[in-house]
Write a protein that binds this DNA or RNA. Structure first.
Length: 117
DNA sequence: CCATTGACTTAAG
DNA sequence: CCTTAAGCCAATG
């Protein structure tokens, strides 16, 4: 009999969803940070693909995930091109020209936030 | 089955 | 920050 594996055994997409669900309201992160937290730092494209597939999921706040410079690269994939910005502004994040203002202060790093000392 | 694409990132210049 | 190059891998043609 073997030990039940933990989250390591889940699919990559599944793990991405878990992390994205943990993003606090009013915070954002980027694809690379998620990928890095999952141990696949260079598979950031897959995180994007996971978001694309996340549309069917009820509680995956894909609007809180942007690219590394705080640009709303996923905006065009929402129902309306402004949906993503609207959601972010609603959470207290200022967005201008598809770019998050003061991105660094809103940034949420799973590797730091979810680490256990 | 091979080629291209894509909600990306990092490194080097 | 910009450009170029390379890495990554599922999905699509």
């Amino acid at each position: 009999m073997q030990i039940k594996l933990s989250e390591e055994n889940k699919d990559f997409f599944q793990r991405v969803y878990e992390v994205v669900r943990l993003i606090p309201k009013g915070r954002v992160t980027n694809y690379g940070a998620i990928a890095k937290y999952l141990g696949t730092a260079r598979s950031s494209r897959m995180v994007g693909w996971a978001m694309n597939a996340a549309h069917s999921l009820p509680d995956v706040p894909a609007h809180r995930v942007v690219n590394r410079i705080g640009l709303l690269s996923g905006a065009g994939h929402f129902s309306t091109p402004t949906q993503m910005q609207e959601l972010l502004e609603k959470e207290g994040i200022e967005v201008k020209e598809n770019q998050i203002i003061n991105f660094k202060e809103h940034f949420w790093d799973p590797q730091v936030a979810l680490r256990i000392d």
